[in-house]
Design a protein around this nucleic acid. Structure first.
Lengths: 192, 192, 192, 192
DNA sequence: TATGAATGAGTGTTCATTCAT
DNA sequence: AATGAATGAACACTCATTCAT
């Protein structure tokens, strides 16, 4: 059986993903984890801490993978395509975590919110740097601000939590490929 | 001075947009509106009712405009482009309402949630029908499910609330045009 | 029957006096007052507020009375004697309030604590000014700092709550007279 | 380095003196002492036990010293004066302990409270006996009950904790002398 | 049409204490 | 002699809603 902190994180992840941070009582979390509130506060300083832990770990993982893909030696279009597929696939593979991340980002207390924003910003900027690299190389159109294209694509990714289901017709990889194809196609230089 | 129900809706819209439905107390809403709780419960059955009212009206308006644009006689690519620009522009023009809609959709009680889903579904399907029309006409690529392209684009739109600011460098119209351009470009038939 | 806020103040006064602020649960107070917690928080912002209210009123009353006595035209020794008797008598007449005041002074939150200290300081200084007046007139000994004599006497007053009982052999007035006599005697100029 | 029980007593004394028994968590005590909770419960049965230990030792010490002074052969006025100075000086010399004693006396559980009251009563009565001895010898006024004069003076002593500071202008000895002088002066037979 | 007093269930958090190791 | 995980009861406080007026 998993350790108490793990069980708490798992229970909180499921519940936060399903109902949203504010709709989940600490009591529900500890009941689902099979422990008491005191045990939870032994390991975590607050309900906020649980939230922080949950999407901190996903974000860290995605940041590392993005870095690995981005710093590869493949052509820029391939690297951006791979990065786009990867963020979709890892979000679906850790769907509860991702849903918590997508919907509860601004439920943190001020200090932790700031910390998260820094990490998120880093991810965003690394992704943007790929678009810029392609624009400078003339492989991607340059008439759209790179920043805007990142918002454009990450909106799509964040929205996954609102409609995707593992029971649906498409696998994570298929959705990832389609989204990456659409994104890369939209960045092709315009003929005009 | 606006009527009491209007003032309540305005106050609730601003607060829900800023802090999220669950983080706003009824007391705050009535304070901001300059009335008392009794007055609010005279006009609205519950806090949920306020939420329902708020994004119901935006959704109805966008649905009407989509219908008008979609049923026009312009070429399909132009109609889809116009629809894409329009949903961005109207979302930004009614930014507080839109932010409430984007973030608090699942905070409604079961019966009203169902009702909302139906309206949203209708919007989604009308938009999808435009993509399908273009695919059938050979104007849009057909190797990506039309349904998926709608999720793809609406993710982008929903995400606006998380980063767009009127103080930023781009106007609503500019963002709308860029997003629509990217979307239409991604739908162009592939050369292969 | 008394109003709800009055009943709450009465209940809190009795309980705080008996058990001390930290040993009284809000639930006990509202039970004794015959209302619910919600009602209490309708009238008072916090448990601290109740405490503040309770000894604020006693302190204000004693300050007013001290002012009236001190600014009279009787000889200084008589005025100081009257002031000394009065603070004992009013403390005993409002014994629960006084006991709350004597034991829970430092249980307030920082901002209210500061406010209380200012009021208490004023009382202390007015009392001290009487001693100084007598010292300057040569009626009281001057080899003991006036400030110290005030601490000396107020220690005695504050201690009342730890031993005085209305069922004991001495009335409030008798205790007041004895204490005032002892205090005035101690201030007589030394023969040496 | 001091032994674990000593470190715990020291830590508890400082914290209880500063914040009051109820405002100090066992966790704070063990943190300050540099040990864990388990260690504390190994040496002390409860948080109450720590409190009991703390002022038990001061009270015992003061009782012994009072006994030594009281049973001396000096004139009664000198002995009472010395006793009065001594209780002030030892209270200031062990200021944290004294403050704990002065403010937290009634925070003990019933059985220990009774035990403490007995010890305190003994101290009170020995002190009173000195006053009575002087009254019978005609050295002290007899128109004030001896019991009341003891309450009178011990109020002053207990109050020390609320205003005395080692950084102030007066040393413990100076305060003790002044207080003893005032007390003895107040006991002088009235000329009438 | 509107007030505001009052409810009661629920919230996150604290904490002295126990106990297997 | 000492750990630290875990308990469970208690805590102050919040809030959507009701209702007599």
């Amino acid at each position: 059986m998993a350790s108490v902190p793990e069980r708490l994180i798992d229970a909180a992840t499921r519940l936060f993903a399903d109902k949203g941070f504010d709709r989940v009582a600490v009591q529900e979390i500890v009941d689902l984890a099979g422990v008491t509130k005191g045990a939870m506060y032994h390991y975590f300083g607050s309900k906020d801490d649980l939230l922080h832990e949950i999407y901190g770990s996903l974000l860290r993982m995605q940041t590392e993978r993005l870095e690995a893909i981005a710093s590869g030696s493949a052509p820029i279009a391939e690297r951006l395509h791979a990065a786009a597929v990867d963020v979709v696939v890892t979000s679906v593979d850790n769907f509860d975590q991702a849903r918590v991340y997508f919907r509860s980002a601004d439920h943190l207390a001020e200090d932790k919110r700031r910390e998260m924003r820094v990490e998120r910003r880093r991810y965003h900027e690394r992704f943007r740097s790929l678009v810029e690299e392609g624009q400078e190389a003339g492989v991607f159109r340059a008439d759209v601000p790179a920043d805007l294209t990142v918002h454009y694509f990450f909106g799509t990714v964040h929205h996954l939590g609102q409609w995707y289901s593992a029971d649906g017709p498409l696998s994570a990889k298929q959705v990832g490929r389609h989204f990456a194809d659409l994104f890369l196609a939209s960045l092709r230089p315009t003929s005009s």
